[in-house]
Design a protein around this nucleic acid. Structure first.
Lengths: 153, 153
DNA sequence: AAATTAGTTGCAAATGATTTGCAATTGAGG
DNA sequence: CCTCAATTGCAAATCATTTGCAACTAATTT
């Protein structure tokens, strides 16, 4: 039995048409590879690496380099958010239009299960850190690691 | 004028002899390359990439692969802590013997200046996250990013 | 102090993630 | 259906990191 995620990703994913019109708006073409990539992302609640996306795609559907280029573009347009779980591979998650996609994950260090976390680093403390060091536009990158219930047995 | 760091790294670095005896204790050899690497680390308050260590070393002093192997070993012995600033290169910082080295950084996204942060993610919230998801041994990886005072001008 | 040996090193080749040059292809708009 | 800029596949290039292996050396033994 798979543990489900009780956050925003449980809700229906964005319509593909919503995504494509967003691309069109930026004068980007809706190509086969891109539609296929967006479909994969739409149906995955958790961040995927480029290789994972590649492996989900029917073989020959799209080149790995095309995926890398697509993800870069989508990130620049703010349509996906990039995450780093510290294992040397970038991961991407689709995000809603208004949403800034800021959230964190709890990752099992044994089986790589990923759970979305709603908690975030307290804003007041972050502001204090920014003020104390005279930094502007401070944000953070935060991920949690531990052993999931299944791996504890 | 360089902003100084007001935390534990301002204090005198560990003696080299302390470090080498720690290696000996683990039946590891004190070699030229290792002593040189430890010297570099001793004199740097902030995390260094393997390449940065390599570049600090007099040319020919030590092979890059040797540095990679040394850092892996030092990390396994708990003598250095590995950090990830999300730019695809691991960084290492020397840590005190008892110390678990857990702390965070504030990094300028324009000039890469690094400041050590004493604040940490609130333990109670982390415990709540662990409990809510039935995870054990939960820790976190956290780094802050922003624009430093110098780069704001 | 010389012999012994396990731990180390340099070098080159192998990996793995990501990027890039380029010629051929193809959406989108007219 | 034509035109053209955007996009793609493929191969080669980069970058960080790892690994095989024979030569080397610090630490221990004799």
């Amino acid at each position: 039995m798979k543990k489900s995620c009780q956050h925003h990703h449980d809700s229906a994913p964005q319509e593909l048409s919503t995504l494509t019109s967003r691309l069109r708006r930026e004068s980007r073409k809706i190509t086969g590879p891109r539609a296929a990539i967006l479909e994969i992302l739409r149906h995955h609640p958790h961040p995927l690496t480029n290789r994972e996306i590649f492996d989900e795609l029917p073989k020959g559907e799209c080149d790995l380099a095309t995926i890398y280029r697509a993800m870069q573009m989508l990130e620049k347009l703010g349509m996906v958010k990039r995450f780093d779980f510290g294992d040397g591979a970038a991961r991407y998650e689709l995000m809603g239009e208004g949403d800034d996609g800021h959230h964190h994950h709890l990752i099992c260090t044994r089986c790589d299960t990923v759970v979305e976390i709603e908690e975030c680093f307290p804003a007041e403390i972050e502001q204090r850190i920014a003020a104390k060091n005279n930094f502007k536009a401070v944000t953070h990158r935060l991920e949690f690691f531990g052993i999931c219930p299944a791996c504890q047995k």
